[in-house]
């Protein structure tokens, strides 16, 4: 988009404090606090350690995938097959269970299937140079399709007792294993994206893949690793959700891919690539959890909640644009 007005060139950069105060993350914190206050006022059951703990189950599984998806989107790619990977991984875990697998093997299968699916996506995109959005629409049907071929309208049940820990266990007081894992993964991904040369490469690729390649970044390899990481996190999410539900159906995690992408975009990651932060994604995950849980306490049906999530997604992106236009007009 070109504008007619001459570009305003500041004579100095904003101070770190000023840029922190006016950052996307700060906006998200304000939104989260506002929703938190509204929830506390509207429901007497909200401000309670166990309620708040339950709340986190709304976003930890999707949040884990969103961390990897954020990197993928920053690098200019996307993976729509994450929910289908969960379905396939969970189905194969169920098959292994039927064959007598114990808990460590089940976890290994879940994570292994995730990695394989991610590698398949990565190979199609990087080796054959295909657009990731279409490739993953295809693999999304393929992966879930295989789950349907194996399971049909059946379900796997009867996961072992100690397997239930991953999705239902607590590491101490009200802190669940899922939340701990999510926060630990968030730290790892924050370090990877914001503190390593790999992370710089991810940003570089998203901003200009050609220039990155000429600067010595191995573009295809970085993208392949990102697809692998997204597959890995989907595999981990498959273990958690299978453990939490205690059963596998081929329709498991249906529609998760859209919620994960909503989380990433809400977190300030540019859907066109090149910009974003892990802190934003983590805050967006909490906001999505707060909104759905708060509305749930008010007995709002799930499908009506989705209206709020959709509005939130569009509003959070549209409002800054409208605001900056408004300021431009006044200036």
């Amino acid at each position: 988009m070109t504008t007619d007005t001459a570009r305003h060139v500041p004579d100095r950069l904003d101070s770190p404090l000023r840029s922190a105060v006016f950052s996307w993350e700060m906006l998200l914190v304000l939104v989260a606090v506002a929703i938190f206050i509204v929830n506390s006022i509207s429901s007497p059951y909200f401000l309670n350690a166990w309620s708040l703990s339950d709340l986190t189950f709304n976003f930890t599984e999707k949040g884990l995938i969103a961390l990897a998806m954020a990197l993928l989107i920053i690098a200019g790619e996307i993976d729509l097959s994450v929910a289908a990977i969960i379905a396939l991984a969970s189905t194969l875990m169920g098959m292994a269970l039927q064959a007598g697998a114990d808990t460590p093997l089940l976890v290994a299968i879940g994570i292994g299937v995730g990695l394989l699916c991610g590698a398949f996506n990565g190979l199609l995109v990087t080796r054959l140079g295909l657009p990731s959005i279409v490739v993953t629409i295809g693999t999304m049907s393929l992966f879930r399709g295989i789950a349907y071929i194996i399971l049909g309208d059946q379900a796997y049940k009867g996961y072992p007792q100690n397997f239930a820990f991953f999705g239902q266990g607590y590491v101490g007081w009200v802190i669940s294993f899922e939340l701990t894992l999510f926060l630990a993964a968030a730290v790892v991904f924050w370090f990877l994206l914001h503190r390593t040369s790999f992370g710089r490469a991810v940003f570089a690729i998203g901003n200009n893949p050609v220039a990155s390649a000429f600067s010595g970044v191995r573009v295809e390899r970085v993208k392949f690793i990102l697809f692998l990481l997204t597959g890995l996190m989907s595999g981990i999410a498959a273990v958690l959700i299978t453990s939490r539900l205690g059963s596998t159906r081929p329709s498991i995690a249906q529609g998760y891919e859209l919620e994960v992408i909503t989380m990433v975009v809400l977190g300030g990651v540019n859907i066109l690539g090149g910009a974003g932060s892990i802190l934003g994604v983590v805050l967006a995950a909490f906001i999505m959890g707060l909104v759905t849980f708060g509305l749930g306490l008010m007995n709002v049906p799930g499908i009506v909640m989705s209206i709020f999530v959709g509005l939130l997604l569009i509003a959070v992106i549209a409002l800054p644009i409208i605001w900056s236009r408004f300021r431009e007009r006044r200036a």
Partner: peptide
Amino acid sequence: LGTLTIFRG
């Protein structure tokens, strides 16, 4: 993506 959920809701 937003209107997908909004319209169905």
